[in-house]
Amino acid sequence: MANYKQADYEALRRRCVELKQTGWKQADIARAFGLTPAWVSQTLKTFRQQGESGLTTGKRTGAPPRLMMEQLDQLTTELTKGAGHHGFSGQVWTRLRINQVIDKLFGVSYDPSQIGRLLKKVGWSRQKPARQARQQDPQAVANWQEERLPALKKSQR
């Protein structure tokens, strides 16, 4: 396809429709402008379905958001209460857990792969939990390694 700027496409779409209305074939229109026949076909189909409004250049929007900003604010408030507050064991939030909270609060379910994108939108970042629990007692670990671990190793022999 030829290198057209985004602003040129609206005029190009209008010209394709004009030429088609004067009897040009789609293949000839595509060849004249260096376009693919599929592009011309799609342009003409859009014109038939939507009329003049289908030819205008506009930002293509995706699906509307399932949660409004106020709901996202409410979600972050709930998440700061901790996973235990919502009935989960431990305080680690996972995408699946967050999705369950969203479903419970708002009746909306996301694919777990999209939870990170949703949280990034409100300024949260993905973090890995520390390997060692903060509440772990170093003295108790040392005692266990000195007393209990050797006994376990001996009993395995």
Rank of each mutant, 00 (worst) to 15 (best):
G87I: 11
M68A: 02
V122I: 04
G82W: 15
G82T: 07
R134P: 07
N99I: 07
T77K: 13
P138Q: 13
V92K: 10
T36G: 10
R15E: 14
G90Y: 14
R148D: 03
I98F: 15
T22N: 01
S125I: 08
E70I: 06
Q100G: 03
Q74Y: 03
L119N: 01
Q145T: 14
L72A: 12
S125M: 12
L19C: 05
V17N: 10
G82H: 14
S125L: 08
W93M: 06
P138K: 13
W39S: 08
Q26G: 10
L75Q: 04
W124S: 00
S89P: 01
Q50L: 10
L149C: 13
N143R: 14
P138F: 11
K59S: 14
A142M: 10
Q26L: 08
K153I: 12
A133L: 02
P112T: 13
P64V: 03
G23N: 13
R117N: 05
G82D: 07
K104D: 04
L75H: 06
G51T: 05
F47W: 04
G82M: 07
V141D: 15
Q135C: 02
R15K: 11
T80E: 13
G51E: 11
G58N: 04
F33E: 12
T61F: 15
V108K: 11
D137G: 10
G58K: 13
Q136K: 15
T94Q: 09
A11K: 02
K25L: 10
L35D: 06
R131L: 08
L79M: 15
I102E: 06
R48Y: 00
R31H: 11
V141G: 06
Q132T: 06
P64W: 05
R48N: 07
P138W: 04
K5V: 08
Y110G: 00
W39M: 08
G90R: 09
G34D: 04
W24N: 01
K81F: 06
A11W: 00
A30N: 02
N3M: 12
E52V: 05
P129K: 02
A32M: 11
I98W: 06
T36K: 03
K20N: 10
V17L: 00
Y9T: 15
G51V: 10
G62K: 13
G54V: 04
L149M: 09
A7E: 09
V122S: 11
I29A: 02
K5D: 08
G51R: 05
A83S: 07
S125Y: 07
A151I: 08
K5P: 06
L152G: 07
T46S: 11
G84I: 12
L44V: 09
Q91Y: 09
K154L: 12
A38D: 08
R117A: 12
A142E: 14
R148M: 03
L96F: 15
K45H: 02
P37H: 01
Q50I: 01
K153P: 01
V108W: 10
V108A: 05
I115C: 14
E70H: 11
I98N: 08
Q42V: 05
K154G: 05
C16G: 04
P37S: 09
N99V: 05
V92G: 15
D103K: 14
G116I: 05
W144P: 03
R95T: 10
V17Y: 03
F47V: 07
P138D: 15
